[in-house]
Structures are given as C-alpha cells and as structure tokens.
C-alpha cells in the first residue's frame, strides 16, 4: 500500500546564504495491507521528514512515493487532497484546530468532510472519546486549553474515526498513561486486522514490539558527509 523508492530530499535555505541541507537520499521501503512498519533511527535521522513527505506537507522532488496506487511525488494538490480525504490518515503530534470548536466536532471532522450524516459522525466521535477515557465534560469544550495527554487523545480519536486504508502515526503513544496507551495499541491492532497499512514512529520500544511487524532504520537514508 505504501511503496517508496529512491526518495531524496534537501532543504535550500535562501535566507541563510542559500545553504543547501541534504537530509535524505535513496529512501526506499514498502508497507503492505495489514502490516505495521516502524521507522527507527536516531533523533534527526529523518523519520519525521519521511513521514511528512508521504503526508505531503514536505515536497518530494526525487524518487517515487506511491500510496494505494497514487503517485505523490510532484503530485498536484488536488491529488493529495483527495488521497487525504479518502485513503490516507495521519496522527501527528500537533493538534491544529480552530479555537472554540468543541472537541467532539473536531474528532468527527474527517467523517463530516466525507459527507457522512452529522448525528452518526458525532456518535462515533463520542464513542472513541469514551474509549480513550476523555471525560465527557470535555467533549463540548475546545481542546486548545487541554493538557498534552488530553490533546494527544483528541488527535488519536480524530485519526482513528475513519477506517483509513493507509495510516501514518507519529508518536501515537507519547504522553499517554498506561491505560490509554493500551487503548491506542488496541486501536492500532484493530486497524491492522481490518487490513490497514500502517507506518509509524514509536519511541516506546514496548509499544513498537506490541504492534509492529517490521522496523526500517532510516539511518541508511541519511546522506553521508561526503555527499554533502
């Protein structure tokens, strides 16, 4: 479901004398349906960069990134947007929302964007929030003032509300307590069971062991000093 071949990336910092920062070269990996693959490597090795290139908020200029049959390298915005609407889910570490929107509305958003009935979408959102032990009194509040762990659970609920065929998980269990961590791992296992292809970054080795079938070390994709 995810096929990556020969992907490279460099940043050009125009406002710092045009400095060129090569951050990735020759990245290749593949994730099949029902499979969960972890990206590993030291901090700064390029795990998040690769995830972002698949999500599309980092531009891919070199190589090929194919998700569920759609080529994303140099793809037009509408191709990426359609993929995000129908196929590709993303749980990031950051919660970016319009202030003052109730939590349940934010979680239901991906379903509403697909035109699913509002009542059904909200019911499903509430079910997930309940499962993630987010107190009911918070559902009608905006998550902008929530604690880190609470925001993370809102993010996860939004990421898992739709049965995405392909999912990207960036530290889904970070800043969660043991009980909630277990819930998230269950959600991941359920997604795998229904055939989702999952690529994730997990700092937590136990979590990684619990859900991941394979690991890909991105250190091998880091450009060597000579290449720079």
């Amino acid at each position: 479901m995810i096929e990556i071949a020969g992907v490279g990336k460099q940043f050009v910092l125009h406002n710092q004398g045009g400095a060129v920062l090569p951050v990735m070269t020759g990245a290749s990996l593949s994730v099949g349906a029902g499979e969960c693959v972890a990206l590993v490597g030291a901090s700064g090795a390029g795990k998040s960069t690769l995830m972002r290139m698949i999500w599309g908020n980092y531009r891919c200029e070199e190589g090929s990134i194919n998700v569920a049959g759609t080529e994303l390298c140099r793809a037009a915005p509408r191709v990426v947007l359609e993929l995000r609407r129908s196929t590709l889910g993303y749980v990031s570490q950051f919660l970016r929302v319009i202030p003052r929107i109730p939590t349940r509305q934010i979680v239901a958003e991906p379903l509403l964007a697909q035109g699913i009935d509002e009542d059904a979408a909200l019911a499903k959102a509430e079910g997930l929030l309940e499962r993630l032990n987010l107190p009911q009194r918070l559902w009608s509040l905006s998550p902008t003032t929530f604690s880190g762990g609470e925001q993370q659970r809102v993010n996860i609920a939004r990421g898992f509300i739709q049965d995405w065929p392909v999912m990207l998980l960036d530290e889904p269990t970070a800043s969660l307590d043991a009980a909630n961590r277990a819930v998230v791992l269950d959600l991941i296992l359920e997604a795998k069971a229904r055939g989702a292809a999952i690529l994730g970054i997990f700092h937590d080795a136990d979590a990684r062991a619990a859900v991941c079938d394979r690991e890909v070390d991105v250190t091998g994709f880091t450009p060597t000093k000579e290449a720079a």
Partner: peptide, 12 residues
C-alpha cells in the same frame, strides 16, 4: 501548492 506544504516546506 498544498497549504501545509507551502507553510511547512517553503521553497521560495
């Protein structure tokens, strides 16, 4: 380009 791409990975 995509909004988050232009904001997160600006080229120009």
């Amino acid at each position: 380009g995509l909004t988050d791409q232009v904001l997160d990975d600006p080229q120009h």
